[in-house]
Amino acid sequence: MDENDPRYLRRAVELAAEALAVGDEPFGSVLVTADGEVLFEDHDRVSDGDGTRHPELAIARWASAHLPPEERAAATVYTSGEHCPMYAAAHGWAGLGRIVYASSSAQLTEWLRAWGVPPGPVRSLPINDIVPDVPVEGPVPEPAEAVRALQARAHGRV
């Protein structure tokens, strides 16, 4: 982790809060160049019933359409939650670089289990089980607690 990572992680968590405020699941992500320029940011948009409308997939699609391969590989994706297998695969196919996440899939799985929430349709796996060569950092304790609070609100546990 470098000194700029916490700022971008905070923004990803802010985007997750924005998603929750408009009735979506609390996930947010930010795409940042090697020079620290924010290129793209988004939050979950699954309230329309399309469970694939997560920000990680939007970032992979945007980057594939707008960045040459070398810029994609040098970029970092900051996200409130660790990519699920579908989004990790999209990240890999797009040729994106490093991923930094606030909370892990294992944490989310445990929180949901403790709250009695049934598991989702996709098994949680670590990102590097899907894309082994992508540098990954996370979870990060302070923003992970903020994500836990958002997830608790999303599932009526607050």
Score class of each variant (00 low, 15 high):
E37I: 06
S29V: 06
E37M: 08
H83M: 12
I59Y: 10
E18Y: 03
G23R: 09
V32P: 11
D48V: 06
E71K: 13
R53W: 01
A88R: 07
I59F: 12
E82V: 06
I59N: 07
T52M: 10
G81H: 09
A65L: 14
A21D: 15
V22C: 01
E41F: 00
H66W: 04
E25G: 12
S47H: 10
A90R: 02
F27W: 12
P68T: 01
A65H: 13
I59M: 09
E41Q: 13
E18M: 12
G51M: 13
P55Q: 05
A34F: 00
E41R: 02
H91R: 11
A58K: 10
H83W: 07
M86A: 14
A19S: 12
E41M: 08
H91L: 08
A17I: 10
A19C: 05
A75T: 05
G36R: 07
A65C: 09
E41W: 01
V46C: 14
W62H: 12
L39Y: 00
A65D: 15
V38Q: 09
L20V: 06
A90V: 02
T52P: 00
Y78M: 03
A65M: 14
L20S: 04
Y87N: 15
D35N: 07
L39S: 00
P55C: 02
S64I: 10
V38K: 02
H66D: 02
T33Y: 00
I59L: 13
A58F: 11
A65V: 12
I59H: 09
G81Q: 11
T33K: 00
A88I: 03
W62Y: 12
V30P: 06
L20A: 08
A19Y: 05
A74I: 13
W62A: 02
D44R: 11
T52H: 12
H54C: 09
S80Q: 09
V77Y: 08
L67A: 11
A90D: 06
A58T: 01
V32D: 11
S80I: 07
L39W: 00
D44T: 15
A58P: 00
L31Y: 02
V38M: 13
D35M: 01
V77S: 08
H91A: 11
E70L: 03
G28T: 10
V22P: 00
D44G: 15
H83Q: 10
G49V: 11
H83S: 05
G49F: 07
A75K: 03
A60G: 01
C84S: 04
G28D: 01
A89T: 13
A90P: 03
A88S: 09
E71P: 00
A90L: 04
